[in-house]
Structures are given as C-alpha cells and as structure tokens.
Simulated assay, not measured.
Amino acid sequence: MRILVIEDERLLADSIVALLKGDGYQAEAVYDGLDGLSQAKLDIYDLIILDVMLPGMNGFQIVKELRNNHIGLPVLMLTAKADLDDRVRGLDLGADYYLTKPFESIELLACVRALLRRQKEEVNEITFGDLHLDLSGISVSCNGESLRLSSKEFDVLRLLMQAGSSNIPKARILDQVWGYDSEAIENNVEVYIAFLRKKLRNLGSSTKIVAMRNVGYHLEIENEN
C-alpha cells in the first residue's frame, strides 16, 4: 500500500513517513500544497494524509481539486485547528476523516488501516482497455482468460493501469515498487516490463506497454483512434 503525506512541517512529515514504513507501508512526503496536488494527481497512491495549512495551496483546495478530477482515493486530513467548522468544511469537500494535532501514533495508524480497509472493500478491480486487474486475487484477466502475477509484476502493472495513458518515469516505478532504500536498479524495471508484455501477449490483450525514451512507460490500446 502506498501513502502520500502532504505536510509542510518537515519533521512531522518525515516522522509520519517513518512510522508508516515501520508498519509495512510504502510512504513518501511532499512539503508544499502545489507539489502535493501534482503528486496526488498521478493517482498511484492508496491514501493521502493531508495537512490543512500548506504553502502554495491549502488542504481544502487540494481535496476539492482531487474530487473535481474524479480521484476518489481516501484522504485523512490533519489540522491544528479543532474548530468544528473546519472539520465540516473538509468533510463536505470530500475528505474521509480528520485528526487534530497533536495525535498519538497508534491513532494515526488505526485511521490509516480503517480507511485502507474501506477502500479495498469498495474497489477490488482496476480496468484499462480490455485488461482487468484483480486487486484481491493478484491476477490480470482479458477476454475471459486470467493469469496470476508475481507481487512485483502486480505492483508494476497496477501503477501503469492507474496512470493509464500518462507516462510514469522508470525511476518512479523503481521507487514505488522496490522502495527508496532498495539496491534495485532501473534494469529491474525493464525486466519486469518484459515479463508483463509477454503475459499480455499470452492473454491476447490489445493493451500494450509503450516505452517513451527518456520519459517513461504508459499504456496504449492497439488500433485505438
């Protein structure tokens, strides 16, 4: 599970990231509202932990923009304000839950687990073109045929299907799938892209993984006008 933390207090943001990683999640922090929105729009995350007061763009504006773009991933908002009006405003704009600073680590992790559990119950499949990725069964299907994926194949294909026709840089795939602290190299991405291309061919899928030199990878539907 991948979590994006958008928080301008760097010490707090980095502490949350460390806490999440310690609990088995992949997490990264962004310290500015505009950068956070840009990152969130990649739609490659399972959850966003979002501060209200941010430079560039506040948390309310970010939630509104995400929902206007039909990005429905869960949002856990953090605020130093305990004012009821702020909480109501955030929830009305599309936030899923609120935590008021300061909070306990166990409370934050409990909220994260609850929101991710709810998200998994609501979304069990991602589709793009003729491909259907089963999030619970770790398999991909096309035209009634299904193939099991390895964990890395699943993670790479999930990123690609979530991004769709938008390019994902090779370095980002490496970071998101293998982790920032991994000793894996970009060649690992190329190897798994090759594995996935073979499996998509075996399924007879019209969805292709396209490489753009010095840009990244994206999906295309063959013969799409």
Score class of each variant (00 low, 15 high):
77 M>G: 05
103 F>Q: 01
109 L>C: 08
143 N>P: 01
97 Y>D: 08
65 E>F: 02
143 N>R: 06
107 E>Y: 11
45 Y>K: 14
156 V>R: 10
83 D>A: 10
87 R>K: 15
86 D>W: 13
110 A>C: 03
120 K>G: 01
111 C>V: 07
78 L>K: 09
47 L>R: 07
94 G>Y: 06
136 S>W: 06
63 V>L: 13
114 A>E: 07
150 S>F: 02
56 G>R: 09
134 D>Q: 07
140 V>F: 00
151 S>E: 09
89 R>G: 11
54 L>S: 13
84 L>R: 14
52 V>R: 05
138 I>W: 08
76 L>D: 06
77 M>C: 09
80 A>D: 05
140 V>C: 04
60 F>W: 10
113 R>H: 00
138 I>M: 07
137 G>K: 13
131 L>H: 09
122 E>L: 06
84 L>M: 15
113 R>C: 00
70 H>M: 06
110 A>S: 09
94 G>T: 11
146 S>L: 11
72 G>D: 15
131 L>S: 11
125 E>W: 02
126 I>Q: 08
68 N>S: 15
127 T>H: 10
73 L>D: 15
138 I>P: 04
137 G>F: 10
146 S>Y: 12
156 V>N: 13
86 D>H: 12
46 D>Q: 08
105 S>C: 04
138 I>V: 12
131 L>Y: 07
99 L>T: 12
99 L>H: 06
108 L>W: 10
101 K>F: 01
149 L>F: 04
56 G>Y: 10
77 M>A: 08
109 L>V: 13
80 A>C: 04
78 L>M: 14
70 H>R: 12
68 N>Y: 04
105 S>N: 10
110 A>E: 05
155 D>G: 05
113 R>L: 00
104 E>M: 08
100 T>C: 02
102 P>S: 02
114 A>W: 01
89 R>V: 12
130 D>E: 02
108 L>N: 06
58 N>Q: 11
70 H>E: 12
88 V>H: 14
60 F>C: 13
81 K>Y: 04
113 R>K: 00
123 V>C: 00
97 Y>W: 00
106 I>T: 09
70 H>S: 12
60 F>N: 11
148 R>Q: 07
134 D>H: 10
100 T>Q: 00
130 D>L: 07
106 I>V: 06
96 D>C: 11
95 A>F: 08
109 L>T: 09
136 S>N: 13
82 A>R: 02
94 G>W: 03
140 V>E: 01
122 E>D: 12
92 D>G: 14
65 E>M: 03
68 N>H: 14
93 L>I: 13
51 D>K: 13
119 Q>N: 11
56 G>S: 12
120 K>N: 03
44 I>T: 14
